[in-house]
Design a protein around this nucleic acid. Sequence first.
DNA 1: ATGAAAGCGCTAACAG
DNA 2: CTGTTAGCGCTTTCAT
Lengths: 353, 353
Amino acid sequence: MADQVTKSPTIYDVARAAGVASSTVSRAFARPGRVNAETAERIRKVAAELGYRTNPLARALPTGRTCLIGLVISDVTNPFYNEIIRGAQAAATEAGYTMLLTDAQESGVKEREALERSVSLVDGIVLASSRMSDSAIRMIAKQRPVIVLNRAVSDVPSVVTDNPRGMRRAVHHLAELGHERITYLAGPEASWADGTRWQALREAVHDVDLHAHRIGPFEPTVAGGAAALADLARHPTSAVIAYNDLMAIGLIRALTTAGARVPDDVSVVGFDNVFAAELVTPALTTVAAPLHAMGQAAVRNLLALARGARPTTHGPVSLPAQLVVRASTAHRRRNSTSPAWGTTRVSGSAARA
Amino acid sequence: MADQVTKSPTIYDVARAAGVASSTVSRAFARPGRVNAETAERIRKVAAELGYRTNPLARALPTGRTCLIGLVISDVTNPFYNEIIRGAQAAATEAGYTMLLTDAQESGVKEREALERSVSLVDGIVLASSRMSDSAIRMIAKQRPVIVLNRAVSDVPSVVTDNPRGMRRAVHHLAELGHERITYLAGPEASWADGTRWQALREAVHDVDLHAHRIGPFEPTVAGGAAALADLARHPTSAVIAYNDLMAIGLIRALTTAGARVPDDVSVVGFDNVFAAELVTPALTTVAAPLHAMGQAAVRNLLALARGARPTTHGPVSLPAQLVVRASTAHRRRNSTSPAWGTTRVSGSAARA
DNA sequence: ATGAAAGCGCTAACAG
DNA sequence: CTGTTAGCGCTTTCAT
């Protein structure tokens, strides 16, 4: 039965038992060099016997450092963040920091409230795919070091994936497979990543002389991807690139249900390479973000910032993305002129050449 | 550029500006009833102007309460915890608490270290599928209120799913489909859930006069499930129940690759109903744990404990599980005496029908 | 209802 | 190298 009666020993208890001043005990733990080896040894021994453990809270008060960092995630439920969380945690632990993880539950308001309650508690904050406005972010960046992940906010250091390059690879892959028209399934309008991806797609497509068309925005979820089918049917293409894996998966399912075959009738590529991407059938071709590395980089940079380092680079730190080719993309079949999966009545003729 | 120069105003700044004693300011925030309505109003106004926000750290020192609770997860990467985290977070926020999430990275040692660093910081701890020994858990339960999730530890309150009932439902479902022999794919030996599930399976199977056979243990991952194929092939059955969804998914994939058809040749049921369960093909029939509710219940109970409530019930609090029937289970085909998916060379002729 | 003062447990000058 | 002495920002008796 939980009996939290025993008050944990304080620095004074140790000091008394070791016959030294409390400040010496403090030094023995914080600055072992500044204390006689023998005394230090004795203090450690006594402390161990008493079961003394320095109270991080009390320590934080005079020093102003809590050794806590906040990681705010727009939606912990999204598998996209799994590896990011882990990378961040690893970097934090490695540096002796503890992580305060907060789920913003998709809401800019909740995000703000949560931040409200935790800014003063942490030495720095990583904002992953924040739903807050740029100005709100700059606001909190005034109070504590902040790194934004997966987004660029002027005057606030950030870590992102190299979407342009990832997108270029996806487009080249599709081009090699003979596809000529690509539909982009847009994610949330507020998403910075969505903007860069669509922009990158337009440029990439231009380079290799293909065409791109955008539909959306849709929710960045399986349901959102499924919902995109109707729009896609109105203007079908043999290839589609989705804002993220979840949407790609949703679309594939809807497509399959509607009688289309992936990748035979339409090739689909996602973004992020989340865990489920390789589990679904067909396994998803996707642009893999270096999730773990991103979480890690964000925390490391944050910690550097907290230590007083000025952000070196000006633009965001950009981590390389890779294309993971799996089974959801295939060579375009010339003969499939009209989609078998038209909305209601398959308006056959409207297909591309 | 992050300029954390501006020191945030203290209670004294507010007191001075409002022309009252600091203690009055303190009361105005903590015990509004104990202060003149007008003064309180003035104080709030001044505080707002100055942008004063009470420092939770400084508050925690004299009160001993940090309004922080720790949630330790054996592996944040496992989708099983997604909804649990969310439920926990919701309950915490609702009660005005902030959550300190820690990933134990599958390691009892790391778990312990992380705990070491955070016990003194929190008002209570939820241990989800802890990898530590019962005695280690009881140890930390002596220092702070603790709730263990998904496990039973004597003398420590816990929240679990009703595995026996879930298992019974799965077995009845399989029985109705005409299956007679069920293989259980065991998860980690150290897992409390694994023990109860296998035990429940044996009992359930006995009630309806079927047979159960256990293979394993395997890693509770997709890879682990795939690895189980070899063992299963050695002693094939028309139905298998896996320790969890990830393993079930892994097995299905391996089975499919080996040329077997799910559910035609073998029916597979998982446990947990994680997000990916409905995404895979065939969609997984699984025993759904009330993930969100579990996280929520754990935190609520913890908070009650922290408030001084004695745990009412003696055994663990058990939350109901449901069977979600999807596409990975089907009626047993009488004629498939020998598996078409034998270990190495698929002995062609042996196909069903 | 309000003020004064004594800490919470620890760190950080400053002397010795 | 070690002891002394102030605080960090807030709460909490105890007076008034």
